[in-house]
Amino acid sequence: MANTATLTTDSKQTWGGGKSPFSVSYGKLMMWIFLLSDAFTFSSLLVAYGFVRFTFTSTLPNTIVKPFAHLSHSFVEDMNKAGLFVTERWPSPELVFNHFPFLHGIHLPLMFVSLMTFILIASSVTMVLAVEAGHRMAKKEVEKYMILTIIGGAAFLGCQAWEWTNFITEGASLSGNPFGPTAFAALFFIVTGFHGTHVLSGVILNIVIYINVVKGTYDKRGHYEMVEKVGLYWHFVDLVWVFVFTFFYLI
Protein backbone atom coordinates (compact mmCIF):
# COMPACT_ATOMS: atom_id res chain seq x y z
CA MET A 1 0.00 0.00 0.00
CA ALA A 2 2.83 2.33 0.91
CA ASN A 3 4.75 1.58 -2.21
CA THR A 4 3.24 3.09 -5.32
CA ALA A 5 6.58 4.02 -6.86
CA THR A 6 6.42 1.35 -9.55
CA LEU A 7 6.99 3.92 -12.31
CA THR A 8 9.75 5.95 -10.69
CA THR A 9 12.68 3.57 -11.02
CA ASP A 10 15.26 6.27 -10.36
CA SER A 11 18.33 4.32 -9.27
CA LYS A 12 18.94 6.57 -6.27
CA GLN A 13 15.40 6.01 -5.08
CA THR A 14 15.59 2.27 -5.75
CA TRP A 15 18.99 1.49 -4.31
CA GLY A 16 19.33 4.41 -1.89
CA GLY A 17 18.51 2.22 1.11
CA GLY A 18 15.70 2.26 3.63
CA LYS A 19 13.41 0.14 1.47
CA SER A 20 13.38 -2.98 -0.66
CA PRO A 21 14.64 -2.37 -4.21
CA PHE A 22 12.40 -5.24 -5.35
CA SER A 23 9.35 -3.89 -3.60
CA VAL A 24 8.94 -7.13 -1.65
CA SER A 25 9.76 -7.98 1.96
CA TYR A 26 12.95 -9.89 2.67
CA GLY A 27 10.97 -12.99 3.66
CA LYS A 28 9.22 -13.20 0.32
CA LEU A 29 12.44 -12.53 -1.60
CA MET A 30 14.16 -15.34 0.32
CA MET A 31 11.23 -17.67 -0.40
CA TRP A 32 11.75 -16.95 -4.10
CA ILE A 33 15.48 -17.64 -3.83
CA PHE A 34 14.76 -20.89 -1.95
CA LEU A 35 12.27 -21.93 -4.62
CA LEU A 36 14.89 -21.23 -7.30
CA SER A 37 17.33 -23.58 -5.55
CA ASP A 38 14.57 -26.17 -5.14
CA ALA A 39 13.78 -25.81 -8.84
CA PHE A 40 17.42 -26.72 -9.56
CA THR A 41 17.12 -29.84 -7.40
CA PHE A 42 13.97 -31.00 -9.18
CA SER A 43 15.48 -30.07 -12.55
CA SER A 44 18.52 -32.24 -11.92
CA LEU A 45 16.30 -35.18 -10.93
CA LEU A 46 14.14 -34.74 -14.02
CA VAL A 47 17.18 -34.28 -16.27
CA ALA A 48 18.58 -37.54 -14.80
CA TYR A 49 15.27 -39.18 -15.72
CA GLY A 50 15.46 -37.67 -19.22
CA PHE A 51 19.00 -38.99 -19.61
CA VAL A 52 18.08 -42.54 -18.63
CA ARG A 53 14.86 -42.48 -20.65
CA PHE A 54 16.77 -41.30 -23.73
CA THR A 55 19.19 -44.23 -23.53
CA PHE A 56 16.35 -46.74 -23.93
CA THR A 57 14.38 -47.68 -27.02
CA SER A 58 10.99 -46.00 -27.31
CA THR A 59 7.91 -47.74 -26.07
CA LEU A 60 6.05 -50.12 -28.33
CA PRO A 61 2.58 -48.74 -29.01
CA ASN A 62 -0.05 -50.73 -27.16
CA THR A 63 -2.59 -52.19 -29.55
CA ILE A 64 -3.66 -55.09 -27.32
CA VAL A 65 -5.39 -53.60 -24.29
CA LYS A 66 -8.24 -51.22 -24.98
CA PRO A 67 -9.59 -48.76 -22.37
CA PHE A 68 -12.20 -50.31 -20.02
CA ALA A 69 -10.95 -53.79 -20.93
CA HIS A 70 -10.88 -56.45 -18.25
CA LEU A 71 -7.48 -56.87 -16.53
CA SER A 72 -6.55 -60.45 -15.71
CA HIS A 73 -4.49 -61.37 -12.63
CA SER A 74 -1.59 -62.31 -14.87
CA PHE A 75 -1.63 -58.92 -16.62
CA VAL A 76 2.08 -58.19 -16.02
CA GLU A 77 3.12 -61.69 -17.24
CA ASP A 78 0.88 -61.32 -20.30
CA MET A 79 2.51 -58.00 -21.13
CA ASN A 80 5.92 -59.61 -20.62
CA LYS A 81 5.06 -62.27 -23.17
CA ALA A 82 3.63 -59.69 -25.59
CA GLY A 83 6.96 -57.82 -25.48
CA LEU A 84 5.42 -54.68 -23.99
CA PHE A 85 7.12 -55.07 -20.58
CA VAL A 86 10.73 -55.99 -21.32
CA THR A 87 13.93 -54.79 -19.63
CA GLU A 88 15.41 -53.26 -22.77
CA ARG A 89 12.37 -51.13 -23.56
CA TRP A 90 10.77 -48.28 -21.64
CA PRO A 91 7.18 -49.35 -20.78
CA SER A 92 4.16 -47.41 -22.00
CA PRO A 93 2.92 -45.41 -18.96
CA GLU A 94 -0.73 -46.08 -19.81
CA LEU A 95 -0.14 -49.81 -19.25
CA VAL A 96 1.69 -49.28 -15.95
CA PHE A 97 -0.60 -46.69 -14.36
CA ASN A 98 -3.99 -48.09 -15.28
CA HIS A 99 -5.70 -48.75 -11.95
CA PHE A 100 -8.41 -46.78 -10.23
CA PRO A 101 -9.60 -47.21 -6.61
CA PHE A 102 -12.80 -49.27 -6.24
CA LEU A 103 -12.71 -50.18 -9.95
CA HIS A 104 -10.53 -53.23 -9.66
CA GLY A 105 -9.70 -55.23 -12.78
CA ILE A 106 -10.60 -52.56 -15.33
CA HIS A 107 -8.03 -50.97 -17.64
CA LEU A 108 -8.38 -47.21 -16.97
CA PRO A 109 -5.18 -45.71 -18.41
CA LEU A 110 -3.92 -42.53 -16.69
CA MET A 111 -7.36 -41.79 -15.22
CA PHE A 112 -6.18 -41.83 -11.60
CA VAL A 113 -3.20 -39.58 -12.24
CA SER A 114 -5.47 -37.15 -14.10
CA LEU A 115 -7.63 -37.00 -10.97
CA MET A 116 -4.52 -36.34 -8.85
CA THR A 117 -3.49 -33.52 -11.20
CA PHE A 118 -6.96 -32.03 -10.93
CA ILE A 119 -6.87 -32.20 -7.10
CA LEU A 120 -3.53 -30.38 -7.03
CA ILE A 121 -4.69 -27.65 -9.46
CA ALA A 122 -7.87 -27.18 -7.40
CA SER A 123 -5.89 -26.87 -4.15
CA SER A 124 -3.63 -24.32 -5.85
CA VAL A 125 -6.72 -22.25 -6.71
CA THR A 126 -8.04 -22.36 -3.14
CA MET A 127 -4.57 -21.32 -1.92
CA VAL A 128 -4.43 -18.28 -4.19
CA LEU A 129 -8.00 -17.39 -3.14
CA ALA A 130 -6.81 -17.50 0.49
CA VAL A 131 -3.99 -15.09 -0.44
CA GLU A 132 -6.50 -12.82 -2.19
CA ALA A 133 -8.81 -12.88 0.86
CA GLY A 134 -5.76 -12.05 3.01
CA HIS A 135 -5.21 -8.85 1.01
CA ARG A 136 -8.75 -7.82 1.99
CA MET A 137 -8.10 -8.83 5.64
CA ALA A 138 -11.11 -11.18 5.40
CA LYS A 139 -10.18 -13.58 8.22
CA LYS A 140 -13.16 -15.93 7.81
CA GLU A 141 -12.53 -16.35 4.07
CA VAL A 142 -8.82 -17.02 4.60
CA GLU A 143 -9.78 -19.73 7.13
CA LYS A 144 -12.22 -21.33 4.68
CA TYR A 145 -9.79 -21.42 1.76
CA MET A 146 -6.87 -22.59 3.91
CA ILE A 147 -8.94 -25.54 5.13
CA LEU A 148 -9.88 -26.42 1.53
CA THR A 149 -6.21 -26.23 0.52
CA ILE A 150 -5.20 -28.55 3.39
CA ILE A 151 -7.91 -31.04 2.38
CA GLY A 152 -6.72 -30.92 -1.25
CA GLY A 153 -3.12 -31.55 -0.20
CA ALA A 154 -4.07 -34.42 2.09
CA ALA A 155 -6.24 -35.94 -0.68
CA PHE A 156 -3.32 -35.76 -3.09
CA LEU A 157 -1.04 -37.49 -0.56
CA GLY A 158 -3.67 -40.19 -0.04
CA CYS A 159 -3.88 -40.75 -3.81
CA GLN A 160 -0.11 -40.99 -4.04
CA ALA A 161 0.03 -43.48 -1.16
CA TRP A 162 -2.57 -45.61 -2.96
CA GLU A 163 -0.64 -45.49 -6.23
CA TRP A 164 2.63 -46.38 -4.52
CA THR A 165 1.01 -49.31 -2.70
CA ASN A 166 -0.37 -50.60 -5.98
CA PHE A 167 2.96 -50.23 -7.76
CA ILE A 168 4.85 -51.92 -4.90
CA THR A 169 2.41 -54.87 -4.59
CA GLU A 170 2.88 -55.46 -8.32
CA GLY A 171 6.59 -55.95 -7.67
CA ALA A 172 8.15 -52.55 -8.34
CA SER A 173 10.93 -51.36 -6.03
CA LEU A 174 14.13 -49.34 -6.11
CA SER A 175 16.02 -52.41 -7.31
CA GLY A 176 13.47 -54.31 -9.36
CA ASN A 177 10.75 -53.62 -11.87
CA PRO A 178 8.52 -56.17 -13.59
CA PHE A 179 7.32 -53.50 -16.04
CA GLY A 180 10.65 -52.84 -17.71
CA PRO A 181 13.98 -51.21 -16.89
CA THR A 182 14.83 -51.06 -13.17
CA ALA A 183 15.68 -47.37 -13.54
CA PHE A 184 12.05 -46.66 -14.44
CA ALA A 185 10.71 -47.78 -11.04
CA ALA A 186 13.70 -46.37 -9.13
CA LEU A 187 13.33 -42.92 -10.69
CA PHE A 188 9.56 -43.05 -10.25
CA PHE A 189 9.91 -43.66 -6.50
CA ILE A 190 12.70 -41.12 -6.04
CA VAL A 191 11.09 -38.28 -8.00
CA THR A 192 7.44 -38.74 -6.95
CA GLY A 193 8.70 -39.44 -3.41
CA PHE A 194 10.69 -36.20 -3.35
CA HIS A 195 7.67 -34.35 -4.70
CA GLY A 196 5.40 -36.08 -2.17
CA THR A 197 7.73 -35.01 0.64
CA HIS A 198 7.30 -31.45 -0.58
CA VAL A 199 3.52 -31.85 -0.57
CA LEU A 200 3.68 -33.28 2.96
CA SER A 201 5.79 -30.39 4.28
CA GLY A 202 3.49 -27.99 2.39
CA VAL A 203 0.44 -29.47 4.15
CA ILE A 204 2.21 -29.18 7.54
CA LEU A 205 3.14 -25.53 6.82
CA ASN A 206 -0.45 -24.86 5.72
CA ILE A 207 -1.76 -26.33 8.99
CA VAL A 208 0.63 -24.13 11.02
CA ILE A 209 -0.48 -21.04 9.08
CA TYR A 210 -4.14 -22.04 9.44
CA ILE A 211 -3.77 -22.26 13.24
CA ASN A 212 -2.18 -18.80 13.26
CA VAL A 213 -5.00 -17.41 11.12
CA VAL A 214 -7.60 -18.83 13.52
CA LYS A 215 -5.69 -17.43 16.52
CA GLY A 216 -5.75 -14.02 14.85
CA THR A 217 -1.96 -13.62 14.72
CA TYR A 218 -2.00 -12.04 11.27
CA ASP A 219 -5.04 -9.93 12.06
CA LYS A 220 -3.05 -8.34 14.88
CA ARG A 221 0.05 -8.03 12.71
CA GLY A 222 -1.93 -6.06 10.15
CA HIS A 223 -1.18 -8.23 7.12
CA TYR A 224 -1.48 -11.84 5.91
CA GLU A 225 1.91 -12.07 4.24
CA MET A 226 2.70 -15.45 5.82
CA VAL A 227 -0.22 -16.87 3.81
CA GLU A 228 1.40 -15.44 0.67
CA LYS A 229 4.81 -16.93 1.47
CA VAL A 230 3.46 -20.41 2.18
CA GLY A 231 1.27 -19.94 -0.90
CA LEU A 232 4.36 -19.43 -3.06
CA TYR A 233 5.72 -22.75 -1.77
CA TRP A 234 2.40 -24.49 -2.41
CA HIS A 235 2.18 -23.23 -6.01
CA PHE A 236 5.75 -24.34 -6.57
CA VAL A 237 4.76 -27.88 -5.55
CA ASP A 238 1.94 -27.69 -8.13
CA LEU A 239 4.40 -26.35 -10.71
CA VAL A 240 6.77 -29.28 -10.13
CA TRP A 241 3.87 -31.72 -10.50
CA VAL A 242 3.16 -30.30 -13.97
CA PHE A 243 6.61 -31.49 -15.05
CA VAL A 244 6.55 -34.77 -13.09
CA PHE A 245 3.21 -35.51 -14.78
CA THR A 246 4.60 -34.58 -18.21
CA PHE A 247 7.76 -36.66 -17.94
CA PHE A 248 6.54 -39.74 -16.07
CA TYR A 249 3.07 -40.16 -17.51
CA LEU A 250 2.98 -38.50 -20.93
CA ILE A 251 6.43 -38.98 -22.43
Binding site: P21, S23, V24, W32, V125, G231, L239
Partner: peptide, 30 residues
Protein backbone atom coordinates in the same frame (compact mmCIF):
# COMPACT_ATOMS: atom_id res chain seq x y z
CA UNK B 1 4.28 -32.15 -24.24
CA UNK B 2 7.19 -30.22 -22.72
CA UNK B 3 5.97 -27.06 -24.46
CA UNK B 4 2.46 -27.55 -23.01
CA UNK B 5 4.08 -28.07 -19.59
CA UNK B 6 5.99 -24.80 -19.93
CA UNK B 7 2.77 -22.98 -20.90
CA UNK B 8 1.10 -24.33 -17.73
CA UNK B 9 4.16 -23.37 -15.67
CA UNK B 10 4.00 -19.85 -17.12
CA UNK B 11 0.39 -19.39 -15.96
CA UNK B 12 1.08 -20.83 -12.48
CA UNK B 13 4.12 -18.61 -11.94
CA UNK B 14 2.70 -15.43 -13.44
CA UNK B 15 -0.78 -15.40 -11.88
CA UNK B 16 -0.83 -17.86 -8.94
CA UNK B 17 2.65 -16.87 -7.76
CA UNK B 18 1.99 -13.21 -8.53
CA UNK B 19 5.15 -12.93 -10.67
CA UNK B 20 3.32 -10.92 -13.37
CA UNK B 21 2.89 -8.04 -10.93
CA UNK B 22 6.38 -8.04 -9.41
CA UNK B 23 9.27 -5.77 -10.38
CA UNK B 24 11.07 -6.83 -13.57
CA UNK B 25 14.35 -7.08 -11.67
CA UNK B 26 12.92 -9.75 -9.34
CA UNK B 27 11.45 -11.61 -12.31
CA UNK B 28 14.87 -11.83 -14.00
CA UNK B 29 16.65 -12.88 -10.80
CA UNK B 30 14.41 -15.95 -10.71
Amino acid sequence: FVFLGIVKAFYIVSVFMHMKFERKFLVWII
